[in-house]
């Protein structure tokens, strides 16, 4: 029988397969993505060029897929590092006493106070743009809300009855962390990670689009979209529409998967 949990699992599986397919295909198509052929300029989509070609005769399908692939790899890496930072700082704030807590909470408030995209651009610009700029920019601007959740979660856990009882029963500190705390935090971290992912991809694309991200030689989605802007008025709709659509589909899919995970983990809707 089909119930919501099975649907969610299918959706997750589909998302994972879609993601891996693009990542792998993109890596293989990278060479084709930069191949120019001036006899085939500005062609609309047809059978040989599914997404058409651009002003340098490059195949837009290859460019889109390898751009997405690059975005996904950057997204994966940044989401992973952000989650790790969130976990470490959140736990440290909750366990290492008032001073540390105040400092970390202040840091969270400070970073959250600055508009997201502005902070991203500032950091990326400061470390010299390019791949490292994007990576550091996104990781440093995306850890806060998850860190806050982890912090309050750990604080609550420390006061929970079963951990207090375990202490009085003489259970070792390391075992308490491993047995009682980690299993509670894992779902939070997982969901945080999955939801960070589309964010990271979108931000990578947007700062690259604005010229503060990856360098123009790389077939990044942001670069593709920025270039296509110049040709939109000439009626070359496929240059922007198809890569843009692919980006939206990828992001939506992961947002959906993340929200499904949230619902599964929320006891108020766990039995739907």
């Amino acid at each position: 029988m089909m119930n919501r949990r099975r649907r969610t699992l299918l959706l997750l599986l589909f998302a994972i397969i879609f993601l891996s397919a693009i990542t792998i295909a993109g890596a293989m198509l990278e060479e084709r993505a930069t191949l120019t052929d001036f006899t085939q300029k500005n062609l609309p989509p047809d059978r040989t060029h599914l997404f058409g070609t651009d002003f340098m005769g490059r195949d837009m399908f290859a460019r889109t897929i390898s751009g997405l692939s690059l975005s996904i790899r950057i997204g994966l890496l940044t989401a992973l590092i952000s989650t790790l930072i969130a976990f470490l700082l959140g736990t440290a704030a909750a366990t290492l006493g008032k001073g540390v807590d105040a400092t970390i909470s202040w840091l969270i408030d400070l970073t959250m106070g600055i508009p997201h995209i502005l902070l991203l651009i500032l950091i990326s610009f400061a470390v010299g743009k390019g791949f490292m700029g994007v990576l550091i920019g996104i990781t440093l601007s995306h850890w806060m809300s998850l860190a806050r959740i982890i912090r309050s979660e750990v604080m609550q856990l420390q006061h929970s009855g079963y951990i207090r009882v375990a202490e009085k029963l003489g259970v070792r500190k390391a075992l308490i962390v491993q047995r009682h705390m980690l299993p509670h935090l894992m779902p939070q971290l997982m969901i945080g990670f999955v939801l960070l992912f589309p964010h990271a991809i979108l931000h990578e694309a947007s700062i690259t689009f604005l010229g503060f991200g990856l360098s123009p030689e790389q077939p990044a989605i942001g670069i593709i979209l920025a270039e296509s802007m110049r040709y939109l008025t000439m009626g070359y709709w496929w240059l922007a529409a198809l890569p843009g659509l692919m980006l939206i589909i990828t992001v939506l899919l992961f947002n959906l998967a993340g929200k499904a995970l949230v619902k599964l983990n929320n006891p108020a809707s766990a039995h739907l």
């Binding site: 029988m1 119930n3 949990r5 099975r6 699992l9 766990a270 039995h271």
Partner: peptide
Amino acid sequence: SFRQYTKAFQQ
């Protein structure tokens, strides 16, 4: 009666 997941994917 309650609809519940008795196993991970069985309602």
